[in-house]
């Protein structure tokens, strides 16, 4: 497996539209729940062990068996009660497929799959293994909101990046666990939810003016 290929896929500069999404941070800031670097740290950690854990498991499973993409996509629908988050996930999945199509030959994965499914399918096409797909998913679940935090709150970017470094071992553990469960039936895969991410995404979708798409 090529580590450099993993870096290409996990790079925040990949033109797949990720910069337009705050992963729920914009609502958390607006509600006053996230103000400081410490608040951001707890937000990121909570997100990693819920949305990140689920994304990692589904990316790993889709990487191991890209032909399971439809079943996994349904599984993410059942884990994403917020229509705004389903829309955001599918928009990012579609954007990732569009970018990746220029990079590697892709198998079929629908027009607009959920982002973790797209990530797994793309990782497989790039000849990465399920653990690599999972680590990209886990890491990606926190890097977007981290950079949104710097932009929204004007926080010290060094301090915020230090949070990401602190979460890196957790990303590795989550990815290893995800890679060990690729053969689980879809209902048995992780389903950790974060109520305020769902609620916040729905409230965010009603705003007239917002900086981020989600």
């Amino acid at each position: 497996m090529s580590l450099a290929t993993l870096l290409v896929l996990a790079d925040g500069r990949l033109p797949a539209g990720g910069h337009a999404h705050s992963g729920g941070l914009e609502t958390a800031v607006s509600s006053g729940r996230v103000r400081t670097v410490a608040d951001v740290g707890r937000f990121l950690c909570g997100r990693l062990f819920t949305a990140g854990l689920v994304a990692a498991a589904f990316a790993a499973a889709a990487c191991a068996r890209p032909d399971r993409w439809a079943e996994l996509d349904d599984g993410l629908d059942a884990r994403t009660p917020s229509p705004a988050l389903r829309k955001a996930s599918r928009a990012q999945g579609r954007a990732l497929l569009r970018a990746a199509r220029a990079m590697w030959p892709l198998p079929a994965a629908g027009r607009e799959p959920h982002h973790p499914v797209a990530l797994g399918v793309v990782a497989a096409a790039a000849r990465l293994d399920p653990a690599a797909a999972a680590v990209a998913a886990a890491h990606g679940s926190v890097t977007g909101p981290a950079s949104a935090a710097v932009r929204l709150l004007g926080l010290d970017p060094y301090a915020v990046h230090a949070l990401l470094a602190g979460l890196a071992p957790d990303c590795d553990r989550i990815a290893a666990d995800a890679a060990a469960r690729i053969d689980d039936p879809v209902d048995a895969l992780p389903a950790a939810g974060a109520p305020l991410l769902d609620i916040g995404a729905e409230l965010h979708a009603t705003w007239e003016v917002r900086l981020f798409a989600s």
Binding site: G24, A28, S31, R33, V34, D39, R42, F43, L44, C45, G46, R47, L48, F49, T50, A51, D74, G75, A78, R79, P81, D170, V186, D187, P190, A191, A192, G193, A194, P195, L196, L197
Partner: peptide
Amino acid sequence: STLHRHELAVGPGAPAWSGAAVLGGGGAV
């Protein structure tokens, strides 16, 4: 078909459950 699949963990074993992504300091859900 599976309509809704959800897990929620709170307490010392659940990382950052009271952080702004999960319950945001809320005492009930």
